[in-house]
């Protein structure tokens, strides 16, 4: 049994099903240039300088796309005009001319690993680029909420259990006290879509990078623990709430005629949880996970209503077909009082 696996009674809970990915984003600006939002005329020069610095230090770095990184972090793609660099040596994406001149984003399974990877690339860039910095307030960023270390470090968590039993609010208050923040997705009018939360530091100034990373890791660990307990509690103490949520979602997935990506993400949330806990037949946990992670939730809305309906209709047809044979298994049925 894997150390992250918890079994109590009927419930199998895997910590890795809760923890989606961790990230560390380091924002920097190059001295002598206006920030990208103020002046786009120097964008090419900045992208070229970043590209050149990367080429010297990270031979495999090349211009690419941030799709995979964005998907694993459930984050919107970088704004138009951003140049993205990817590399083989490190699990890092470098974006030039986003909100800041340079954003180095490391992605890994823990905040510590993500930060180490991002820091390595940031230090390599720092050998060739002169970053805007003041001794009193640190690295100067376009947004006042990033100044100082310029570091946002966090973990993306799937907190379906805590949301279902209504314990997310106390958790958010607890994070506030730790100077951490829970950022949720609010897509297409659905609040906390898919119950995906990005747990990230609220302060960037006045504490060093190691403190921020350590606290971020502690906050994520605490929430993963809370979520696993919530899932066990759902199965053992609130089986009707749990089964209602799963069966309701399955029913809609089998019969909906129009499904937007955001709505689908929201419906797949309890299904992913049930699949990972081994309560479904006809769909493996891996398959539910892949489906959950690959939705085009940030694709721009089709302005034409007919075309939008056509896309949503086609998506619903595919989902209806895929879920036609997905049913709760005997373990799930045994849960019912």
């Amino acid at each position: 049994m894997s150390p992250s696996r918890r079994r109590r009674g009927y419930a199998d809970v895997f910590e890795e099903d809760v923890r989606i990915s961790s990230f560390a984003r380091i924002s920097r600006n190059i001295s002598g240039y206006k920030f990208p939002g103020r002046d786009s005329s120097s964008a090419d020069a900045i992208a070229a300088a970043v590209g050149e610095a990367l080429e010297r230090e990270m031979p495999s770095a090349k211009e690419g796309r941030a799709d995979t990184a964005c998907r694993s972090l459930f984050s919107a793609p970088p704004p138009k005009g951003t140049t993205v660099f990817t590399m083989r040596e490190e699990p890092v994406v470098v974006a030039a001319n986003g909100t800041d001149h340079v954003a180095v984003c490391g992605i890994a399974d823990t905040p510590q690993k993500a930060y180490r990877a991002a820091e390595k690339v940031e230090e390599a860039l720092g050998k060739h680029l002169s970053f805007a910095w003041r001794p009193d307030i640190g690295f100067l960023t376009a947004s006042p909420s990033d100044v100082g270390t310029g570091l946002k470090v966090g973990t993306v968590l799937h907190l379906e259990g805590l949301s279902l039993i209504g314990e997310m609010e106390p958790c958010i208050r607890g994070l506030d006290a730790m100077r951490m923040r829970a950022e949720s997705l609010d897509l297409a009018g659905i609040r906390q879509t898919g119950h995906i939360f990005r747990i990230v530091n609220a302060v960037t100034l006045g504490e060093d990078e190691q403190t921020l990373v350590a606290r971020s890791a502690r906050a994520a660990d605490a929430l993963v623990e809370q979520e696993t307990n919530a899932r066990i509690r759902l199965v053992e103490e609130l089986p009707r709430v749990f089964s209602d949520s799963v069966c309701r979602a399955l029913a809609i997935l089998k019969s909906a005629r129009l499904l937007s990506a955001a709505e689908l993400l929201d419906l797949l949330s309890p299904v992913r949880m049930a699949a990972s806990m081994g309560f479904l037949s006809g769909m493996t946990a891996d398959e539910a996970d892949r489906m959950f992670m690959s939705l085009p939730i940030f694709a721009p809305d089709e302005p034409d209503a007919d075309k939008r309906d056509a896309v949503d209709g086609k998506r619903a047809d595919e989902i209806n077909r895929r879920f036609a044979r997905v049913v709760p298994n005997n373990r799930f049925i045994d849960l019912m009082p």
């Binding site: 003041r134 307030i137 302060v203 100034l205 006045g206």
Partner: peptide, 10 residues
């Protein structure tokens, strides 16, 4: 908004 208005990091 911030912890302290003095930089202590890198």
């Amino acid at each position: 908004e911030q912890r302290r208005v003095a930089h202590t990091g890198k």
